[in-house]
Design a protein around this nucleic acid. Structure first.
Length: 111
DNA sequence: CGGGTGACGAATA
DNA sequence: ATATTCGCCACCC
């Protein structure tokens, strides 16, 4: 069950982005950022934090709706764009976090 | 095979 | 700073 399909891989990375941070289409799928956008557009899973995926320059694909959700999570903005220098999670970090999710132990680390 | 499309990215004007 | 153009690649017919 690793479902390591192209889309599945992208989706798993989206889930790896922590609240209050963002990542880019290019980081989700280097070399084919549009495939990432495609995956998000097709995926209807409401538990998917799609709003945390923004363009490389910090602009939003989904406009005000997306902006509102991100601000609610505490993502720093500069005008209409996300402050990428502060909130961006690089591709490598995403893989790291994705691995961490598999180890998700809510009871371990609580002391 | 090709041709068109897109929740993109980078370069250019 | 914004608008346009081009390049890229995955997916569909």
């Amino acid at each position: 069950m690793l479902e390591s399909g192209r889309a599945e891989q992208i989706i798993s990375r989206v889930r790896a982005v922590p609240a209050g941070f963002v990542s880019t289409y290019g980081d989700l799928c280097p070399g084919a950022p549009r495939a990432a956008g495609r995956a998000l557009a097709e995926c209807e899973d409401p538990s998917l934090p799609w709003q945390r995926i923004v363009r490389a320059d910090g602009s939003l694909a989904k406009g005000s709706r997306q902006r509102r959700l991100l601000i609610a999570e505490g993502v720093p903005f500069r005008g209409r764009r996300v402050e990428m220098d502060v909130a961006r999670v690089p591709a490598e970090a995403l893989d790291q976090l994705a691995s961490d999710l598999e180890h998700a132990d809510p009871a371990r680390g609580t002391r």
